[in-house]
Every structure is written in structure tokens, then in C-alpha cells.
Design a protein around this nucleic acid. Structure first.
Lengths: 327, 327
DNA sequence: TAATTAGGCGCAACCGTTTGCGCAAATAAA
DNA sequence: TTTATTTGCGCAAACGGTTGCGCCTAATTA
């Protein structure tokens, strides 16, 4: 009972038609009578016939695959983010009859990316993370391979889909200011990442000309601890953390210092995640939808592949979650 | 300067050969003089020619893709596990000139899996997680699609690659027994998962006929808390946690109860992960190599695809990390 | 030296689609 | 009714590889 290997020829024979007609019925292109078309559609539906994508791809010069490229070595939160993103990518791809080919790259090793592109296995690529001076971007641009990046890059002429970090951080920050925050502190991570700068920018815009203090490159517990100590010494009444991991470390440090949130000072995170799920006063944070990001990225890539003109920079919306930590 | 579209014909023309000869030079099959072959190999190396996998696949009835199927909704540790696994899969696939097509499935929704198989996009599938009464397994068996599962299943006649949980847990447990543990407690999660039962079995074998107590289905903080309370009431001197997440909850609870590890009691985890990285007395745990798992799984799948006979059950080794928590 | 075998290569069919072109029948315009 | 146009469909050539078969030359054997 297997229809494993039915081909378009089988369908054509069975219906007394030519394969051209069957092909045109399926694609809907060309001149076809509505009657015949419906007959074909019904038949292939019933027999569960699926055109062989290799043959289809060969004649159309398409692979019907997109590459999903993520770092091979990354921390847990990112993984969660990528997984959610991937859901969006897969969904959007499926709608266009595409599938997702996954590969990983390292900071200096883009061999995985080269594999799938040089071997003609994908029609385009979605970059899950970018660095400054990103080798992958350079490579894709040079080769003229369609691609979009999730997140932002300083590289010019690159199609990017990102959360509107600046606007989000600006909005949350100005809410904090309204709530009476006078000496806000921003603790940020790797300044090599574009997103860090966006968040800082949003913070500064939101604070207008209120007094603030900024601590950057807090990439480990030590750095964060020292930043928190300095912030307390400064007499801060609110710490804005660049992301969930920093927020986690900040909360830990505050606990060690036996300071109460929000009694002694407010705390907010510019990135919500599961890591923040278990705090007693829940943490005020900015929430994004990674699935939506992936979806948008993939849709954009599809458009690029089909030769449509698309905006270079697409920004997605966010949500401000006001919780107990900034009460 | 683009060699985007060089075909085997171009290569043949350039070298004054026929495409059959070029093809045979590349594959090494058939009768070819070493001279000619080398000439071809040099040329394609220099011009970076890669055979179009769609054309190749079409004529060989192969896609040169394997499907990597993971749950669409899972917790952080799993994600880490899958990511490491994936590394192994990608590596092994690349060696056989395969690429990895990713898709996600839910407990009752295997449409993603159906997509890639019915559309003939993969030659075989690796299942990243299985459940009892697994729909994906049923489906793949029924359709006769080559597949291997990472982890264990009770389903008969399925090729599985797994860590040797029983042996590992047995060994760690017996070490604990040697160390003088007299009233050990096992706290396990979802008994619906095959691995939970394997770990329990290893624990029981390792404890021989020493007194023990078992708490199962501790799938959330509440359940774990109650199990820990009961264990303490029982007067336990060692809690063996089924996995990292349970261990995390146990440690939290012990802290709340103001009990010291290992002074008041020992704690061990039957699964090491990053979640356990930050405890003051480090946690004794069993360490596996997910990358190795993925690699082995993919290699096995390749063998199956090539029609080789393989062992139904492949067990990988482990490492016992003895740390402060069981001192 | 003649007969056989083996080695190296090319021809052409095939894998399962898409699509330009041409032809006949049906429809519309003259 | 005749002519022009449209409509529906089939033919056959791609797409870029692999592979069975056959031919020719060179090496081996009798």
C-alpha cells in the first residue's frame, strides 16, 4: 500500500493526461481548464502524491531549503532564544514549501556555512547571531547569497530583522523616571555587541537629562559585583540591567549585600527570560517574541529569494512587563 | 569571478573529457586511469567545483539530508543537550557529505516530521527525544523510513543510541555505598520517561540490599520539596537526584531547611549539566557527552541508510565526577 | 603472431520535474 | 460563413548529474 514512488508520470497516466498538464494543475501556472485542474488536485490529494523536490529544484534551480545558522557555542538563554526563533523560521518556511537546513559556526570558523552554500543546498541563509566584523556576513555578501540577519549589525547594506531595542528601552526607562527614579544606573555587557549599544542608547534617551551612571563590559560575575558595589556607593535608586543574565547576577549580589528589592532600590531587566522567572518580587522587564522574529526573518528571506524589494531594517514590537521589582 | 554555475559539463569540456569520465573521477567508481582522475580532481579543486546535490540526488534517489527532529517545547537543559547533540550530528553528517534538516514536533503533532519525509527531503531521521507510545516512532516504522533514536524507547525493533544510564548509575551508587551511605534516597522525575526507570534501576542495583527510599514523579518544586522533607524525616544520609533539574530543586530546598551539604547529608546528581556549575560544594554527578551521542546516532543512521546491518542498541560510556557534595 | 582479455573512455538513457512552443478545437469577431 | 483569437493540452527539451553498455587500444596469454 505504499505510494512511496509515485511520480508525476504515474499521475498523468492514471488520469489520461500529459505530465505538463499535471504539473500546470499543481502549480496553477499556464493555461489549464478549471475542470481538469480540479480533477488532478483531487487525485493527488487522495493518493497523497508529492512532487519530488529534487527534480523540481533541479529544473527550477531552487533547493527549497533555507539555511539557519547559529553559533555552535553559546549560553543557555541564547539557546532558548534560538529555539523559539527556529519555531518561527520553520513555520514561515513551511508556508512557502521550504525546509530548514541547520548549521553552526564559530567566531572564526564559518566552514559549516560554506558547506551548505557551496554545495548548493540552500537558496538563502538566516544568520541567528552576528558579531562586528562578522566573517559570515562578509562571506555571504561577497558570494551574493541572499541572507538576512536576526539582530542588528553595523555592516552596511544588510537586511536585518530585530527587536526595537532602542524604543523599548527608552519607554521602560522613561516609565522608571516617571516613577521618581533619580539616580539610575545602567549595567551592560559586552560593548562589542551591537545590542548593548542600542539598549544603552534607549536608556539614555529615556532618562533625558536625569543623573545616571553607566557600567559597561560587565561580562562576568566579578565585573557585575564591582559595578553593583559602585552603584550602591553612588547611591542609586534603580539598576537597569542590560539583559537577563546580568540581572540574575545583580540580584544575587544584592542578596549578598542584604539589600531589598524594591524597598532599597528598584531593579529592571531590558530582557525578559525564564532565568528571571523565580524571583520573589518579580522583575520588571522588556519582553520580546523570538518566534515572531524568526518568522519575520524567514518571510523576509523568502521575499529576497523571490527577488522582491524589501526594507533593509525591520523592527519588531515589544512589551513592557511592569512587576514588583520597580514598585 | 564567480564559479556559481559551473556544471560537470563545463569541467568535461575544459578538460576535453566526457562527463562520464569526470563523474567517475569524482566518485572513484568504475574504470578510470589514475592519471586522468588526478587531472580532474586537481581541476575541480582549483576551480572549486561542487556537483549539484539535486542532480546527484535525483539520479541516485538520495537527498543527502538527514532529519534532526526535536521537541518544539522543552526546558533549558534539554536545549543544551540538543545543541551539543546537534554538533555531533552535523559533524558526522558532513563526513558523509550529508546535511541536517531540522524540524520540531510536539507530543501529538508530528506534522513537521511528516512534512520532511513525505516531501522526500531526507534519507533518514534522527529522533532527539522519544516518549512512550511515541507517534513519531510509529509513523516512521510504518512508512519504513530509516531512523535512529537518541535515548531509549521500549518500542521493539528500534535502533537506539543511548548513554549507559543503568551502568553509570549503578557505578556511582555503589561508590556512594562504599563511602558508607546507609539510608540513600532516590528522587526521580517523570516515570513516563524511559530514562527515569533506567536510572532507578541502576540506583537499586548499586545499592544492593542496603536500605533505600524512592520518590518518583517529582516533576515540580512542590513534589520535590515534599520528597526532600520525607527523606529528611526518614533520616537519609544521601539524596541521589535523577537529573540536574531535580538536583537544583533539592539543593534549593536543603538551603531553605538550612541543611549543609555534605556535612548533614550527601547529594549526587545522575546527570551533570551547567545548571550544577555554581554550587559551593560542587556536586558529584554523572557526566555524559551529548556530542558523542549525536555523532554515534548519525553514524548509525548513515549505516542504516547504506543498507548495513547495525546493532539495535548502542550504549555510550560515561564519567563519574566525584566532587565535594559527597565528600 | 594471432587470439584473448583487460583498461580507459564516450554515448546515451535515465532520475522527476518545469516550461516554451505548437497544434487543434472552441470561441469571438468580421 | 470565414477569419482571427483564445483556450486547453501535449511534445520535447532542458535542469545536472550517474551508470550500463559498447568501442577502441593496449596488455596479456597461447
Amino acid at each position: 500500500m505504499d505510494n512511496e514512488k509515485t511520480t508525476i508520470d504515474d499521475v498523468a497516466k492514471a488520469l489520461g493526461l500529459s505530465k505538463s498538464t499535471v504539473s500546470r494543475s499543481i502549480s496553477g501556472k499556464g493555461r489549464i481548464s478549471a475542470d481538469t485542474r480540479q480533477k488532478v488536485l483531487d487525485y493527488i490529494e487522495e493518493r497523497n502524491y508529492r512532487p519530488n523536490p529534487l527534480a523540481k529544484g533541479l529544473s527550477e534551480s531552487k533547493t527549497y531549503n533555507v539555511g539557519w545558522v547559529i553559533p555552535g557555542d553559546d549560553h543557555l538563554t541564547s539557546l532558548y532564544f534560538y529555539q523559539r526563533c527556529l519555531q518561527g523560521v520553520i513555520g514561515a518556511a513551511a508556508k512557502a514549501d521550504y525546509d530548514v537546513l541547520i548549521t553552526t559556526i564559530g567566531k572564526d570558523d564559518i566552514s559549516g556555512l560554506k558547506r551548505i552554500t557551496e554545495n548548493h543546498k540552500v537558496d538563502g541563509v538566516i544568520l541567528g547571531r552576528t558579531l562586528r566584523k562578522d566573517k559570515a556576513i562578509r562571506y555571504l555578501k561577497e558570494k551574493g547569497i541572499p541572507f538576512v540577519v536576526v539582530g542588528s549589525t553595523e555592516e552596511k547594506g544588510v537586511i536585518q530583522v530585530d527587536n526595537d531595542h532602542v524604543a523599548a528601552c527608552r519607554e521602560l526607562t522613561s516609565i522608571l523616571r516617571m516613577k521618581g527614579v533619580k539616580r539610575a544606573v545602567f549595567i551592560g555587557g559586552d560593548t562589542g555587541q551591537v545590542v548593548t549599544n542600542s539598549r544603552l542608547q534607549g536608556f539614555q534617551e529615556g532618562m533625558e537629562d536625569a543623573r545616571t551612571q553607566i557600567y559597561l563590559d560587565c561580562v562576568n560575575k566579578d565585573r557585575v559585583d564591582r559595578a553593583v558595589e559602585a552603584a550602591i556607593a553612588y547611591g542609586t535608586d534603580c539598576i537597569a540591567c542590560e539583559d537577563d543574565r546580568i540581572c540574575q547576577m545583580v540580584m544575587e549580589k544584592l542578596k549578598e549585600m542584604e539589600l531589598e528589592v524594591p524597598a532599597d532600590l528598584k531593579v529592571a531587566s531590558f530582557y525578559d527570560s525564564k532565568l528571571l522567572g523565580n524571583y520573589k518580587p518579580q522583575i520588571t522587564a522588556l519582553k520580546y517574541d523570538p518566534t515572531e522574529l524568526g518568522k519575520k526573518a524567514c518571510e523576509t528571506l523568502m521575499a529576497v529569494i523571490n527577488g522582491e524589494k524589501v526594507e533593509n531594517r525591520q523592527l519588531l514590537s515589544y512589551e513592557v512587563l511592569l512587576k514588583g521589582s520597580t514598585q
